[in-house]
Amino acid sequence: MSGVTMQVDQFFSNLWQDYIQITPQAKAIQELFVASDGEVINDHVAFRTFAGTPLQLDNLEPVILSMGYERQDSYDFKAKKLRAHSFIHPDPKQPKIFCSELLTEQLSEATQAIIARYTVQIEPQSLSPDVFYSARHWDMPSLEDYQTVMAESEYGAWLLAIGVRVNHFTVSINHLNSTDSIETVLQRVKDAGFGINTVGGEIKGTPANLLEQGSTMADRQVYEFGCGAQQEIPTCFYEFAKRYPGADGIVYQGFVEANADKIFESTN
């Protein structure tokens, strides 16, 4: 096993441990599928960050590339004021990485000012893979600031409170032995008592798009805000993806903007 492969495996192991601390549903759901399938392959993970800061997308990209990844594609989510890149690894068993950033300069001046009060605290630093489970690089926001940002950007409020941590892991339905149906997978998850994101329907995308996706609604945890107030807020969720071969017979490995736009709603 090469050093880079070990590094990537260790990275995802550390990432998973950080993720299940605030997303206990993911461990329970993974165990549900491990029981029937023996192994659960992770299709992709996703990260959120703020543009125009030392942790902006252009600064995180070299860290992802250092693990042997290459950029796969780029995306714009105009309504949500986001841009994103997806990355793919030459080892097909390694998860894809989706990394987006909030284009804060497109927000209202009031919201920009609130976010800037926190992001100004980010120290310029040399970045390594552990940045992706480094959480907040700023003080916990006040509940008032969190709610003000939430009114304009759910993504921005989530990021202010949670920080730079993985937003979701994704079960690759293509690699399950028990079923290749996203409907069956989502039904099993519902039967186990977990809520499903229904924005745009439970299943986002179609076989014609070459990608069908579904997800849980985010877990919730009580956080203490900077003002001392405590409130339960959404943390992270678990996703499920089924990929289809294109006309060339090769299974599609990209992302579909319209699907991803609705998946973002899982933390709403």
Rank of each mutant, 00 (worst) to 15 (best):
P207A: 12
F11N: 00
G214I: 01
I173Q: 08
S215H: 00
V34N: 07
V131H: 13
A208M: 06
P62A: 02
A113S: 12
F194M: 05
S142H: 06
N42H: 05
A192L: 05
P92E: 04
N174Q: 05
F237T: 04
L211F: 03
D43R: 07
E101S: 04
Q253S: 12
N42V: 08
M1L: 12
F225M: 09
N259T: 10
A26Y: 13
N167I: 06
N14G: 10
R220E: 13
R243S: 02
I122R: 01
T170C: 14
Y19G: 01
A35W: 08
L32R: 04
Q147G: 04
H137T: 10
K190Q: 14
K81A: 04
M6A: 14
H89A: 11
Q121P: 11
E39M: 09
P124I: 03
T170A: 10
P234C: 09
P245N: 03
E61N: 12
H168M: 02
Q112F: 09
E105M: 11
V171L: 15
A247P: 12
G68C: 08
F237D: 00
Q147E: 12
P234M: 09
V45A: 11
V185H: 03
A46K: 05
S266T: 11
E31T: 12
Q106R: 15
T206G: 01
W138L: 10
S100E: 14
D191E: 13
F240I: 03
Q56P: 01
S66V: 00
E232S: 14
V8S: 03
L32P: 11
S2F: 11
S108Y: 05
I162F: 06
M6V: 00
P95Y: 00
H168K: 03
V4G: 03
A26K: 09
A218N: 02
W158P: 00
M67A: 02
G205Y: 05
V63D: 07
G3I: 12
F98A: 00
G228C: 01
L159K: 03
L103Y: 09
M67T: 03
A116Y: 13
